[in-house]
């Protein structure tokens, strides 16, 4: 029986998200909610995401617009800790589009 993965290894793997770039691109017009965190920096993007996700139903997808590069680490970490699903990020010239799916049993603030 293989040893259960420690959270650190899961965090490394999770940083890439569970969807590929093509699948993420299709979500731009299909997400339930857009969180605009452009021009803000840690921890504001996460505060806005955390507050917005509280209103979503299981299975709903939120798209977070941000230009704070650190969210590429913070969002996956937040997802692991709250048991939401980190889908991935699209990197554009001046912004990032990150996607999260609200999971069943995820932590509700």
């Amino acid at each position: 029986m293989s040893e259960p993965q420690r959270p650190q290894r899961r965090l490394d793997a999770y940083v890439h998200g569970t969807l590929d770039q093509a699948e993420l691109a299709k979500l731009i017009d299909a997400c339930a909610l857009t969180v605009d965190a452009l021009g803000t920096f840690c921890p504001e993007p996460l505060i806005r995401t955390q507050n917005a996700m509280a209103g979503l139903a299981t299975g709903d997808i939120a798209m977070i617009l941000a230009d704070d590069a650190g969210i590429e680490l913070d969002l996956p970490a937040w997802c692991i800790s709250t048991k939401n699903e980190y889908l991935g990020v699209l990197r554009e010239e001046r912004q990032l589009r990150a996607f999260i799916r609200r999971a069943q049993g995820a932590h509700q603030p």
């Binding site: 899961r10 913070d74 970490a77 800790s81």
Partner: peptide, 22 residues
């Protein structure tokens, strides 16, 4: 040492939910 929120990173290591209160 990439810029990250250490509290969220700790939450992920421990799988403990972390809420950020402004």
């Amino acid at each position: 040492k990439p810029y990250r929120n250490d509290a969220l990173h700790a939450g992920a290591q421990l799988e403990v939910p972390v809420e950020i209160i402004d």
